[in-house]
Design a protein around this nucleic acid. Structure first.
Lengths: 149, 149
DNA sequence: GTTACTGCAAATAGTTTGCATGGAT
DNA sequence: ATCCATGCAAACTATTTGCAGTAAC
């Protein structure tokens, strides 16, 4: 099932209406592919393309997309949230470089199985994982080493 | 090495001064044991005990304690940060119940080794892990099941 | 004596909300 | 016709900051 129809279905299932703003948002988010984006990024992109969607609507729609599992919200150490499209993507988590800000992704079946085990043992029903490793990427670590020598 | 002397040492190493406010904060945080607390919690506790430390100082001192590794900052899904004392504690991560808000901890050597491997392979130097599982605790899941039947 | 620390209040930034109007069903 | 969605601006919340006075070294 594609993004469009998943969204329509979600809207219908909750008695939400298919409006221009919502369709544009879904479209724009699809266009962003695997990139991370903030609410503000979206507002700016809409402006640039002359299809204004207000900040309020962006935030409200993001809530719906989150509830419907079409996007994922990330906490990568900024005071604002970032989001990423969540359709047709393998589960993954993030490595964040504290020096240059680079964000890379990693996924691991072993990791997921391990956490599944943790949950099963505690009869905890996980709905959402949030895993981030903060540190220094290879390049920055290398530069740091060079400087110290 | 105990908390007090680790803190003194940290202050000294950075040319920071040992002030009343900072000592009181360290004390109060020790008294909180393994509990999680917000910046605001601390301000309130100081008020109640008649040893006022201003909000600004609380935030500024928390920064130092974080830098010195004496406390850890947690993102448990609120808009404010929570903190926990980080001395004499085994590494652990958190399970957060989205229904009742209960937070439980879990630690796993296997998990740490696994993530170490991920980092080594990418030559990423991890400084800090942030792992949260959001979902439903055993009790809430049970109640949910009961209600649906 | 020098320099760092503190408290206050104001500033900041991201996000949320009330309300009047417009649009989907 | 109903009731949900939108835009605007104002509200809100956690956190940060400038500054003038105070305390540690």
């Amino acid at each position: 099932m594609n993004r469009q129809s998943r969204f329509s279905q979600f809207l219908e299932s909750r008695n939400l209406r298919s409006t221009a703003g919502r369709r544009v948002m879904l479209q724009e988010i699809s266009a962003l592919g695997e990139r991370h984006f903030s609410a503000e990024d979206l507002v700016a992109r809409f402006r640039r393309r002359g299809r204004a969607v207000s900040r309020a609507t962006v935030y409200r729609t993001l809530e719906h997309l989150l509830a419907g599992g079409l996007v994922r919200r990330l906490s990568l150490g900024h005071k604002h949230s970032l989001y990423e499209s969540n359709l047709g993507r393998r589960h993954h988590e993030h490595l964040i470089c504290l020096r240059c800000g680079e964000v890379t992704e990693f996924g691991s079946g072993t990791l997921e199985r391990l956490l599944d085990g943790v949950c099963r043992r505690r009869r905890f029903v996980a709905q959402r994982l949030s895993i981030q490793l903060f540190g220094m990427c290879a390049r920055c670590a290398e530069e740091g080493r060079a400087k110290r020598n």
